[in-house]
Computed example of a mutant assay.
Amino acid sequence: MERAPGGVAWHETETIAASEIEVAVETEASGRSVLASLDRALELLQAGRIDALVFAPFNKAAMHKAGLAHADELHHMGERLGVTEYLSELNVLDGMWTSRTTSHIALRDVADTITAERLGDAVEVIDRTLRRSGIARPRISVAALNPHAGDGGNFGREEIDVLRPAIEAMQQRQMPVDGPWPSDTVFLKLRDGEIDAVVTMYHDQGQIALKLLGFERGVTVQGGLPYPVTTPAHGTAFDIAGQGTARVAAMRQAFDIACDMVANWQ
């Protein structure tokens, strides 16, 4: 790793030939380049050469063409780093955090996938990550799965049979969590600063809320990894590639959050 003038370290790694580059196109070559760069960054983390990783958004379709064996890069990183515990993407916007009980699965499979154990894992991951980000006493709420939190069982029993007993069990262990709250109102508590985080039931439940509040500033934290890893939450934006109009606020936020995590990591 070379250190350039001004204190910036530069690690040059050739992962793709110039002739293979196609702007805003999902290709196997670009996917191989992403995976090679990511794996090298993970090696630097493990070797103690860097303290955190901040990456620009990846295109999962290109990565899958290149052989990505997981649904997303988080679980690829987990395998490379030898992590066997629960992993979850966490989304952050202006100090508001969300995590997911289920993530990259079909919506029809969500209800059957939600268990007390998965909910407990999701709460523990975001509680630990918030503490590593400098929040000494996190306040966490759980979003319900069904409309009106199931309306006493009229619109589904997941809140009665799974969510509430799991939350009560966590409270007995002094976990700072409450709920389940109707998902159409719990994010107002988050927006107004009454809580620090919402644990959601599925991918879009939290993503829609945060992206509406500030799409260009959102950050994804790779929860459950042994190192701080962050990235902008907005995606690859192929529709504006090469136009010079991309905004950098989310990348700056991702860098700042990674720095906070390094400073508070235990």
Results as ranks from 00 to 15, higher is better:
56 A>Y: 11
171 Q>T: 05
265 W>C: 13
253 Q>K: 12
66 A>K: 15
211 K>V: 03
224 G>L: 13
3 R>I: 01
164 R>S: 15
51 D>S: 15
160 I>E: 04
99 S>H: 01
232 P>N: 04
118 R>W: 07
116 A>V: 05
171 Q>N: 03
48 G>Y: 06
250 A>K: 09
240 I>C: 07
22 E>I: 13
138 P>Q: 06
192 D>P: 02
85 E>I: 08
149 A>K: 13
79 E>D: 12
242 G>N: 13
211 K>G: 05
127 D>E: 14
119 L>K: 06
165 P>A: 14
90 L>M: 15
98 T>K: 10
30 S>Y: 07
9 A>T: 11
26 E>S: 13
11 H>D: 12
205 Q>N: 02
141 S>A: 15
27 T>V: 10
217 R>Y: 03
38 L>N: 00
46 Q>L: 07
200 T>N: 13
56 A>E: 03
67 G>W: 08
68 L>N: 02
250 A>H: 06
120 G>C: 05
169 A>N: 01
172 Q>R: 15
42 L>V: 08
203 H>A: 06
184 D>K: 15
74 L>T: 07
222 Q>V: 00
126 I>Y: 07
256 D>R: 00
98 T>G: 05
190 L>Q: 14
236 T>M: 08
58 F>C: 10
150 G>H: 10
132 R>Y: 01
115 T>I: 11
222 Q>H: 11
